[in-house]
Amino acid sequence: MRKTWLGLGIVAAAFAASPVLAQDAAKTIQDGVYTIEQADRGAELIGESCALCHGNAMRGSPAGPSVMSGFFDKWGSKPLSDLYAYISTEMPLDNPGGLAPDDYVDITARILALAGAPEGTETLTSDETALSKITIADKAK
């Protein structure tokens, strides 16, 4: 009986370390978590809803601060859900939370592109549980 439990323990440990179970492993924004199409749509939305305060490149204007200056200092090591939640509840200042969730995720994708994160083949989702599994990380670190 003792050998059976030991054998089961070894099999369980092997399964736990298996790459098949690691599919849900944490990602960073450097893993290509958005598509270029999303970032392009986000650029259009930024022009319509954000540029007045932040400029088209999100580098600031006389009316508002830069989003990109110190981006990784402010958001680095945090889950992407934090950035998305902030944008989708606080912006734009004249209509906080007034855009559709897909619009906010497209704007998030554009911000990631401006921050130098590579595009990928998977569409970024507005699901905050999924976004919480993606860490904002600078490629230099």
Rank of each mutant, 00 (worst) to 15 (best):
G47Y: 03
D103Q: 15
S81M: 03
L114P: 07
Q38S: 02
A57W: 00
I36Q: 15
R2K: 15
S49D: 09
A14H: 01
Y86W: 13
T28Q: 05
Y86H: 13
L45H: 03
E37F: 04
T135Q: 08
S81E: 00
Q23D: 13
A39Y: 02
G116K: 10
W75A: 10
S77R: 13
T108I: 04
Y104C: 06
I10S: 07
R110D: 04
M91R: 11
L52W: 09
Y104Q: 07
A115N: 12
P96D: 02
L83K: 00
R41Q: 12
I111N: 00
L112G: 01
P65D: 09
K141R: 12
L8R: 12
G42P: 01
D127G: 05
G32P: 05
F15H: 03
T121H: 12
A22F: 07
A12D: 03
L80P: 08
A109H: 03
S69C: 01
D127F: 11
L8S: 09
I134T: 06
A39K: 01
L6I: 15
D103L: 03
C50S: 05
S69H: 11
L124E: 05
Y86G: 04
I136Y: 07
H54Y: 07
G55W: 02
G60H: 10
Q38W: 00
V11F: 13
T89Y: 06
T129Y: 11
L21V: 08
D106C: 15
E90F: 13
G55F: 04
A16S: 06
E44C: 06
D40L: 10
A85F: 06
R2T: 14
A16V: 10
A26N: 08
D103K: 07
A85Y: 09
L52F: 14
T108D: 05
H54N: 08
A130F: 11
D94M: 10
K133M: 10
A26M: 13
I10R: 07
A25S: 11
G120V: 02
V67W: 11
G9Y: 02
V20T: 13
K78I: 06
M91C: 11
L112E: 02
W75R: 03
A130K: 14
A16R: 04
T125I: 02
M58Q: 10
A16H: 04
D94N: 13
T108G: 03
T4Q: 12
A109L: 05
M1W: 09
I111W: 00
I136R: 04
D94A: 09
A17Y: 11
Q30T: 03
T123E: 15
G7Q: 09
G7A: 14
R2L: 15
A25G: 04
